[in-house]
Design a protein around this nucleic acid. Structure first.
Lengths: 327, 327
DNA sequence: CTGAAAGCGCTTACAG
DNA sequence: CTGAAAGCGCTTACAG
């Protein structure tokens, strides 16, 4: 099946078929009808490979996420999709599992010209390597922000958000605040840890306890809190750098019959759905997930559309603290 | 950048460059070196569009899910990915949000020859429409099973699984079992409802109450249970057709201080992570998510590799009932 | 072992 | 308004 066959059946040239396919206004109505009829008769579908090879434009972008099972990622992706759809772009999702080999394989879609640009949510530690492959193709980094890099990014100010949480906990009389963090190869993890340390210092708190969850899932959050509570001195508040971890923490505390927030307060990060239906409900930093995704796509589109190299920018979007029952 | 440039720089023909690119054994070592050097020097990356147009083989398949935010979907996708990777395939994810227009747009990747096949997790109600677009391209339906269709599928036996849950609840003395279901355009929703009704009948239970959650998320589950409990006669057990809904149900009951499982038992469906960390933990039907994905890919690969049309099959994988605190 | 040439299925100046 | 022709960047018989 090809334009040739359609052309033959319709009794016109392939050029005319192509014009009909692309809604060119300069086709006589009669011919257009004939072509349309032929297309329908043969159930013709244009070969995108050929079209895109010819036009060197695909109308698709790649979204590379480290873990689609992370609800925060999923929410950001929805934002990207929404904005992409508005602009007639299709989005291809690739799940890297923080695996460099997989990221590399995905990015062949970019270097192989199958997509017009890429939005990554990968760890900042992998950035130099990715930079190498991506070169200066259109690229926006999401939820990770490297001030030294020339890659545009969209995120929140993780440091000040975390500092704010510490302030809030101190206000309610908490003095021994622990942090449950995760993989430090992510910039956001580093920043939230920094904000935590800043907060402790600002309030002159001596207690400082950081524990790293193995994975970014519920059970790892639960394990983390169980091991944390084995220490001689218990915390009276726990900040988890993700609601997913925090939900596991709440379950762990419930099992041990620890009163939340009286004995131990819990605060999460992200503001994903789960935070509303834990028992007790979870106080958290609400990230503007959809907006992060939308903004990321907009920035990417600017890069795609402009011929000259666009100035790279780092966007910081506003966050809000949502106080619920757990603190 | 193209094979031409490499050929010129290396002082060989484009054919030779192509042979090196494709690891053909019949290239003299000297020439291979020269080509490799040129590739490195120019940081050349082959154009996949051109290659795939020429070979009419892409090494990519499309996974179309109705909602990546659904952890069950995410788990199945991981299974697909694992098996795909083993076989040197890349997987492209598209999120349809159960939107037919979006599904249609995604499927252009298939008809446009950008992928070799598709695995769908869309509602069975959309099947005829999809069938139309997909034609007889390689296609496997996941977690949805239409005995009348000629599309291969992989799922569990939803009817008997649900019947089994009812048996278990009855064994613990429950008599008024309610069902929280969701969008009936999905076959699994219909089947689980059928299993529920069969179960009631088998045990001669008079109480029958079905309520439909608006969305497949925590809050809809919570809303559903709150409205359910407004009825004069309360259930003494609730079966939710998804753990996501069940987690919301548990939260709702907790807020109303209903004792689980004494006053009302709760059972979910899927066996995703959340079921382990609700308070109390959630009894559920464990689906073999990863295996469903793996099997789906295997079936798809068979279709892709075989020239003749493969017999379509419907695979039913085993499920298990996991009894936890909530029942 | 290598190269010239054809061709995958499109689009797009160009000439008419 | 339309068609012949070139060309996007590859791969692959074919001949040598």
């Amino acid at each position: 099946m090809s334009v040739q066959k359609i052309a033959k059946l319709a009794g016109v040239s392939v050029a005319t078929v192509s014009r009909v396919l692309n809604d060119s206004p300069s086709v006589k109505a009669v011919n257009k009808e004939k072509v349309l009829a032929a297309i329908k008769a043969l159930n013709y579908q244009p070969n995108l490979l050929a079209r895109q090879l010819r036009t060197s434009r695909t109308g698709m972008i790649l979204a590379m996420v480290s873990n689609i099972a992370n609800p925060f990622c999923a929410a950001v992706v929805k934002g990207i999709e929404r904005e992409a759809e508005k602009n007639g772009y299709r989005i291809l999702l690739c799940n890297t599992e923080s695996d460099l080999e997989r990221s590399r394989s995905c990015l062949q879609l970019l270097s192989g010209k199958m997509v017009d640009g890429v939005i990554t949510m990968d760890a900042i530690s992998e950035l130099p390597e990715l930079q190498n492959i991506i070169g200066d193709a259109p690229w926006v980094q999401c939820a990770e922000y490297d001030p030294d890099s020339s890659v545009s990014s969209v995120s929140i100010d993780d440091i000040s958000a975390t500092e704010f949480v510490i302030d809030q906990l101190v206000k309610t009389g908490k003095k021994r605040i622990a942090l449950i963090n995760h993989d430090l190869s992510y910039q956001y993890a580093q920043h939230r840890e920094l904000g935590y340390l800043n907060g402790l210092k600002r309030h002159g708190l001596a207690y400082c306890e950081i524990i790293y969850a193995d994975e970014l899932d519920y059970l790892s959050g639960k394990e983390a809190v169980l091991s944390l509570l084995k220490n001689a001195q218990r915390p009276d508040a726990i900040l988890a750098i993700s609601d997913v971890l925090a939900a596991g923490v709440i379950n762990g505390l419930n099992e041990l019959n620890v009163a939340i927030p009286e004995d131990i307060a819990v605060v999460g990060f992200d503001g994903i759905d789960i935070s509303q239906i834990t028992t007790p409900s979870l106080s958290t930093i609400q990230q503007p997930c959809k907006e992060i995704g939308e903004m990321a796509f907009s920035l990417l589109l600017q890069q795609i559309d402009s011929t000259s190299s666009v100035k790279r920018v780092h966007h910081l979007l506003p966050w809000t603290f949502i106080k619920r029952q757990s603190s």
